[in-house]
């Protein structure tokens, strides 16, 4: 599995397409048979408490794309705060298992693992 992270509009999806995937390979925040999962953070935000259960299914994906959501001022709103932390912790676990982790900055893929 390749984990692709980065800020909003940092070029994550374009990068994944450059690996040979097309729009029809990319599932938007839903688990199905498509090889690429996009917007993982949306799945975590819709159910932060249960997000750890996504782990096994995500490992079977070829590519997982997630926004980096942990930067900046810690939100006052508890739900938002917990969702941010849950996203971070899930990504830490995925990064450990991933064969490669790529972080997009200004459209530039920076390989941080593998």
């Amino acid at each position: 599995m390749i984990l692709v992270v980065g800020a909003i509009a940092s070029g994550k999806k374009e990068y994944v397409k450059s690996l040979g995937y097309s729009d029809s390979d990319i599932a938007d925040a839903i688990l199905d048979e498509r090889p690429v999962l996009y917007n993982l953070q949306d799945m975590v935000f819709s159910d932060p408490e249960g997000s750890g259960n996504l782990y096994d299914a995500l490992l079977k994906k070829e590519v997982v794309i997630c926004n980096e959501v942990g930067s900046g001022i810690i939100p006052v709103d508890e739900t938002e705060r917990k969702a941010r932390e849950a996203t971070g912790r899930l990504c830490n676990r995925l990064a450990q298992a991933a064969e490669r982790v790529v972080r997009l900055v200004c459209g530039i893929p920076v390989v941080i693992k593998g």
Binding site: E68, V69, G70, S71, G72, I74, R81, R84, E85, A86, T87, G88, R89, C91, N92
Partner: peptide
């Protein structure tokens, strides 16, 4: 440095 829950404490 880093954002929330990025593994700072563990590391």
């Amino acid at each position: 440095t880093g954002g929330s829950a990025c593994g700072k404490s563990t590391y």
